[in-house]
Design a binder for these strands. Sequence first.
RNA 1: GGGAGCUUAGCUCAGCUGGUUUAGAGCAUCUGCCUUACAAGCAGAGGGUCGGGGGUUCGAACCCCUCAGCUCCCACCA
Length: 873
Amino acid sequence: MNFNKIDVEKMPKHFDSAGKEKQWAKFWEENNIYAYNPAYNPAYNPDKLHEDTFIVDTPPPTVSGSLHIGHVFSYSHTDFIARYNRMKGKNIYYPMGWDDNGLPTERRVQNYYNVHCDKNAHFIENFIENFTPDKNGNPLNICRQNFIELCSLLAREDEKIYKQLWQRLGLSIDWKEEYSTIDVNSRKIAQYSFIDLYSKGHLYMSNAPIMWDVDFQTSIAQAEIEDRMLAGEMFRILFFTEALNETVEIATTRPELIPACVGVVVNPSDKRYEHLRGKTLITPLFGVKVPVITSDLVDVEKGTGIVMICTFGDVTDVTWWRENNLLLRQVLGFNGRFQAIRFGEKGWESIDSAKANECYSRLQGKTIFSAKKEMLEMLKSDKPSWQHLYALQSEPAKLERMVKYYEKGDKPIEFIPSRQWFVKILDKKEELLQKGEQIAWEPHFAKIRFEEWTKNLAFDWNISRQRYFGVPIPVWYPIDDNGAILFEQPILPAADRLPIDPTIDTPAGYQASQRDKNGGFTSEPDVFDTWFTSSLTPQLNSKWIFDENRHKKLFPATIRPQSHEIIRTWAFYTIVKAHLHENTIPWERVLISGWILDPDRKKMSKSKGNVETPEIWMDHYTADGVRYWAAKAKLGVDTAFDINVMKNGARLVTKLFNAAKFVLAHEGQSAEIVNELDKAFIQELRGLVLRVSKYLDGFDHASALQEAETFFWNIFTDSYIELVKKRAAVENSNAQQRNSAITTLRIGLEVILKLFAPFLPYITEEIWSWSFAAEKNEKSIHLSSFPTVSDLEAIKTPDYSQSYKLALSLLNDIKRYKALNNLSYSSNIPKINLEIGSESLQIYQLLQDDLVAYGRIENVQITDSSSKEASFV
RNA sequence: GGGAGCUUAGCUCAGCUGGUUUAGAGCAUCUGCCUUACAAGCAGAGGGUCGGGGGUUCGAACCCCUCAGCUCCCACCA
């Protein structure tokens, strides 16, 4: 066979990365290069899952503005794995989802369009069509439904931009398998998940103190909490004994909650307060009698060793309140302001109601911040007639303390009793840990994180959110004839009605007119926590009960790539769901990418303002160059952002471009490989293929790339090509030797291209198209098969490793000789001595022509050396 | 307080279950070479007592102990 020769004269001097990236991205999409084929395996056997299918549970990025270089980093890692397995002949299921429901989108919509969601606003028909945002005036009040329309609109726009970036980066996603976490299928599946969990007894509704964000006015799950260090003050407040003649000093950081005080607690071993146990104390200003209880949770060293229990100051308050059946005195409203209450009424008894109400009136309607100021003022300078001392007499002590925040919020979370749906998980720690055992975690420490989180779970999973842009909880409640809502008798829809919106749809057996009427029904107003939906991504892909055949093929998934900070959320909840629904694992393997750190070794994130825009780096260093940078980092390892690595990637792209031009410009014929050096090179190539495959099979893309790169640079371009240059030249009249070299060069290039293809999809596709595409009858390198050693089986024996070693060593001698003598490489060496043992001499003679031609050596003086090493001196 | 990861050349990192490493790569530095694939290149050179200190071993960057520093997760709100 004659090789197709490329015409170098007609080729551009440099690789036009920007133009070629566009061209090939379009080519891949138009030719369905990355499409999942559901009918791929005719002999499909559900009992032998994943024999030829490789299912990626792609992370759906939050659609709320822009992607940063950290996304590029981790999504590239997934793509290397997908591309490698595609070339290994696997049927790749590699979708892309968009996580568009939830708070980030809501907040962005509010700012972007200057609107505000108001439950009382009326619905506007054809709202979007006629809507022009007024960005300067007061926010426009719109109803939930119109608000959701805007959320979807903006999300779609953001998704387009994200998709462009992913395509430019060359992610081999099947864009026919695109979903969003708010689309019809996702709503169906999330709601079915609820129904299934309910029927299996894993759900309960509870009116209990939950973590609440007063700004967003929604409940928050444990996983969404983060701790922040806050400067605070510790006040010492006087409580009074029942006889009103003695005082007890109680330390608190939250004096504004004194009206919510329901008890006082001391450590049972604390001698100082022995006399108070079982007695009653009276709160300052409000004159409320509260019991003194004991608990081991009290630290005798902290504060005064005596703690006031409020409903609710913190999570231990909740514990004490629950364990001791204390009263509920809720002063804080859902909006974070002090709500209306009356002292003297049931549950609010006071020894001086009039004064208590006078004091409280100064707090009512205030936020926590201003109520605290007001309260301190009163404690210092006001006192009821029964108080013989002001309750606050000392200056506060400054302290730094950790306070719980909603991770997206600006004010500390509060504990407020509210009706919420929960998934029971606290009783399933053991089972969940066992599921963790069945999953392969890469790197291994990710599993330890999962286990630590699971062991330390403190709350069941609160899945209710009091928000708008989310999947509605598919529940109605009957209203009895007296107007009471029967929360304990929820009405759930049948699976075939899904998705529903209970605020619009009517439950079976009712008329729409019965909504919110006595004897009728009312709807659950809340939506799901976004994790409730995103914990179902494997099922969103497989369609679950809505397409059972597909579900059998696509569930569980093969890999779940993600980053480590969401092990406790996304990974954890996904494991919870698969366990509770089908008693299985959601995927075989979790792959964790590290973080990108800025040069100060802080995590790069938008809020810290140190994020680099990915497009800029692709403009500068090509998409392949950016991917190269990502590929240099092992899974799980945090990496500093370093443009020098991208620069190096771009350098590799250029080198490939030039080396390929050189190799493919040689005219010649496919021929038997007869030359010793060529055979030795092929054997080296075999070793390379083995090593790269081994690393990629073990999800170590960094080492795989390193191997390929070192080989390409050191063995291929700087050694083999240099040595055979003369022999492969058209001037060489020995056709057998020339064709042997040209054939070997082509094999080398083809194998190397394929090894690089998962990492550098653009440059490898470009080179592939020059002549291999036609020769091999495969239009895309990404559809070609990954090299195996058996492809190179012909050159297996005898062992040529000594030959290549000798060639390399002598080549380096020549280079060093010229470098040390400041000789130009085009200069001739009139005479050189070769010291060589008799064993090597035979091999040398087979290599001599190439070596002598490379070094332009006119005369070699051979000296017998007793040492085994051979060298030019 | 509990858990995890990290500390190797000026910088970014390899070195995985101790012995082809008298410690490697790329970048950066210095020196030489326009060699018709590539100066967006090639070659050569310098540079590290592997965070400190102990120990185990014939042998330790690697295993154990200890100290120090950095990062993250969880707990700690009186």
